[in-house]
Amino acid sequence: MTRPPAIEVSHVSYYFRNEAAVRDVSFSIEEGDFLGIIGPNGGGKTTLLRLILGVLKPDAGTIRLLGDHPATSRRSAGYVPQETSTNKEFPILVRDAVRMGLAAARGMGRQLTRENKTAADAMIDTVGLGALRNVTIGELSGGQRQKVLLARALVAKPKILFLDEPTASIDTTGTDEIYQHLERLNNAGTTVVLVSHNISVVSKYIKSVACINKELYFHADGKLDEATLTKTFGCPVDFVDHGVPHRVFHEHEKRHGGDRRHA
């Protein structure tokens, strides 16, 4: 029995108005992979993620998620959006936010069962927020809120997990914690797809890598080369292998900061 690829993207393009956000992208990964999608801000990372999840419909090309149309198969997917994209003023407790992960699986118009609630509580403990269960999300730090979103996605036991910049608002310790957790999940068989602009951290954990800046360069072995990075980021990058990769990051931060000031 051959299993269908976890993700199969072929010749996908997507346009915002008349500008291509993603152009002729093709790649596929097997189940159990740990894919890092990296690229500069505005390079189409989040767009690609939303396309794979069927939130956006491609203008050209086809996408298969777990061998099926995304709108069908995404129920088996977990999604951790960018923490900054959620409304942190929303009146909701940590507990209820995590329970949301089970809302759809339980079925329309049905109350959550006791087991559902226990599972949600256990997941809150797993991500280390047990003491904050009855706190509102607005009172949490960005990093804690990120863990809530992670717990919400994981509580439904997804086959494939998508994360959009999961460590953008977390300090270094928290970042390591999250990645170690993802690594454990991946070892247990969950396919992980992670979007980040932070090459340095990603490169330690991923098995395969895709660099995207409108166009996509896919490396099944997870190794980045300077040529790809230069192409993707549109500027020469001082690429240093796993040892001191932070330099790559800093160069870009500076560059983007400069750009923003000019704008």
């Binding site: 997917a77 999604y79 959006p81 959620t86 949301m100 992960g101 809302a103 759809a104 979103l149």
Partner: peptide
């Protein structure tokens, strides 16, 4: 709270 997540999860 989060329309996109709700959509993906099947609501």
């Amino acid at each position: 709270y989060d329309e996109e997540f709700a959509l993906v999860s099947g609501v």
